[in-house]
Design a protein around this nucleic acid. Structure first.
Length: 599
DNA sequence: CATTTAGATG
């Protein structure tokens, strides 16, 4: 009878071999191959035990591989135990330990191990440095990053792409974009990873336009993007909100046959939603084979920011049907959708459901949605009661939502309460002073408005400059209040003049409550006419053929007067306006806005 | 025997 051929290259073989100690023929090479096939910590431990009984553990390659495999399964306790018992260690052993600790996020021990490594007199190498650089990923640890950067230069390792790419990544994660750029510019061989890190860094630090420029430069330099690059580019597009660019990126992804895996697909749902097309987002969603809880939550949020709360709610049972359990972020999306569509009862039900059915304790984000939901609906007393009775710690977002609700309903007493809390939490954020000031202005309390202004001046706070931009012919045009820098500025202002005359005939009265200063009405109206969102709208009307949807984006919340203005534009011209503000989308059509005037 | 980059939160 022919015996089946023995396969030595599997964990099970090694484990069987353990029961047959005669199987001494396993050499280090096959041992390592066997290790790679272990599926869980339990199997690794059995092979480890066998390595000890056969003395194979004395082989440094075997021991290092064991360390590596333990680390790969996040079994750092096992790895540390082995590491501390190893009689000899080389750079690989140290690197694997440092890397493993960094990966599971145990930064203190990672750093401690790295220091011990340096003290042991070993030379740091190009493998250890990228690992230890992972420890530095916030503004506090950037000092250590600088130290390591210095070490890199002293050791001459900056020539290594892995080391340089890790340095670039470190600076980006710490928010030091200029330093990242410096290292990046000096690289000789800029690799795919360092390009990708630069692209995501710019998107995260508020310059997504530069991300897209870098993406083009990367391709020009002959580097072919991979899935990860595409995710970061899609993320940049979402930040930018540029529909035209989004379509180009989408076409590129299709042309290059990138498979729509769950991460890329989810990023694209978010991109289309934030570029103003919930329909396109839904198409991506429907076309995805694999969906996880993040995919579902993103689609619900997409409906939420477009004010289509009911559709977000419809997805919930479908998600359960497909076997996905909601998590806390799913509930943030759901509650957000409820609040932006005025679905008070539904929101309440989900708020209780999350605790009762899914045993998720609502956190400050969920409370914020509830405050927003109740506040918009005018239930300010109920909202403040919820705030005062909750055991959770209240943050800026929560009080900010409440203050916003007080503004809508003109409740000065509660607004002052919210503002007091906010100014304690964040005394240097000018937005809250402005908001409170607007509330005073609306009530005609000009003395209080003046006080707020004085306070801001004495603290040297400035209003965050508002800017609005519009994408025309694949180019981005940006406007600030009173802006005259645009080459077609003259035409834009003429257009605004014509529009305002037409609108006034249609019954439009400028709502001067939205001007901070106590100046006479005519002058106030003058300020209003040059708000950045009006300039961008006027330019959109000028530069695109009739009937084209105008898509604009603002970095702050839309001004109330501009909101009225755009509603009227959509009634006197055959235009739809899709407007993204810092908070949500407004779809203006035939005189109405999808937000039903709550925002 | 080892190395870096990825998606959702008023």
């Amino acid at each position: 009878m022919r015996m089946p051929r023995r396969r030595f290259f599997s964990a099970s073989t090694a484990i069987i071999a353990e029961e047959y100690p005669g199987a001494y023929y396993l050499n280090p090479r096959s041992f390592i191959s066997a290790l790679v096939q272990c599926r869980n910590t339990h199997e690794i431990r059995r092979v480890h035990a066998y390595a000890i009984t056969t003395s194979m553990i004395q082989n440094l390659g075997v021991a290092n591989k064991l360390l590596y495999i333990y680390a790969g399964h996040k079994a750092l306790t096992d790895a540390s135990a082995l590491f501390s018992r190893m009689e000899q260690r080389d750079n690989v052993s140290w690197s694997v330990m440092v890397g493993g600790l960094a990966k599971v996020g145990d930064y203190p021990r990672c750093l401690e191990t790295f220091r011990e490594f340096v003290r042991s007199g070993s030379r740091v190498d190009n493998f250890t440095l990228p690992f230890v650089l992972r420890v530095c990923r916030d503004t506090e640890s950037v000092r250590l990053g600088l130290e390591i950067h210095h070490l890199v230069y002293k050791s001459g390792l900056h020539a290594d792409v892995f080391v340089s790419a890790a340095l670039v990544d470190m600076y980006v994660k710490c928010g030091h974009l200029e330093d990242a750029r410096k290292v990046f510019d000096k690289m000789r061989n800029k690799d795919l990873v360092s390009w990708t890190v630069m692209i995501s860094g710019h998107a995260e630090c508020g310059n997504p336009e530069e991300s897209l420029v870098l993406f083009d430069q990367m391709r020009e330099s002959g580097i072919v993007p991979d899935k990860v690059t595409m995710v970061t580019v899609v993320f940049a597009c979402a930040k930018l909100g540029a529909m035209h660019k989004a379509k180009i990126i989408h076409e590129y992804i299709e042309k290059r046959n990138f498979s729509l895996n769950v991460i890329l697909g989810t990023a694209m749902i978010d991109m289309y939603a934030k570029c103003g097309s919930v329909v396109a987002a839904r198409e991506i969603f429907d076309g995805m084979k694999e969906k996880n809880v993040i995919t579902w939550s993103s689609m619900m949020l997409a409906y939420g920011i477009h004010g289509q709360g009911r559709k977000a709610l419809e997805l919930f049972p479908e998600m359960l049907q497909s076997g996905i359990r909601p998590n806390r972020i799913t509930f943030v999306s759901i509650l957000y959708a409820c609040s932006h569509a005025g679905l008070v009862e539904e929101g309440r039900q989900f708020f209780y459901l999350m605790g009762r059915e899914y045993l998720l304790d609502p956190d400050v984000k969920h409370y914020t949605c509830m405050i927003d939901l109740l506040g918009r609906a005018g239930k300010l007393d109920e909202a403040i009661e919820l705030i005062e009775n909750t055991p959770i710690e209240k943050d800026e977002g929560l009080w900010g939502a409440f203050l916003g609700a007080c503004r809508i309903h003109g409740n000065i007493g509660l607004a002052e309460k919210a503002a007091k809390a906010l100014l304690e939490l964040s005394p240097r954020n000018s937005g809250y002073y402005v908001l409170l000031s607007n509330i005073y202005a609306k009530a005609g309390r000009w003395e209080d408005v003046a006080k707020m202004r004085e306070l801001m001046t004495s603290m040297r706070l400035k209003k965050t400059p508002g800017w609005t931009w519009i994408e025309i012919n694949n180019k981005i045009h940006q406007f600030s209040v009173g802006d005259k820098s645009h080459p077609q500025s003259k035409e834009i202002y003429e257009m605004l003049k014509i529009l305002s005359e037409k609108l006034e005939l249609a019954g439009y009265v400028p709502d001067t409550d939205f001007v901070l200063h106590d100046v006479d009405e005519e002058l106030k109206a003058g300020f209003l006419y040059t708000h950045s969102e009006k300039l961008a709208t006027a330019y959109g009307l000028l530069a695109t053929p009739e009937g084209t949807t105008i898509r604009i984006i603002k970095n702050l919340r839309v001004c109330g007067d501009c909101h009225t203005f755009m509603k009227l534009i959509s009634s006197i011209t055959p235009r739809e306006i899709v407007f993204r503000d810092a908070n949500r989308f407004h779809h203006f059509k035939e005189g109405f806005c999808s937000c039903v005037d709550y925002w």
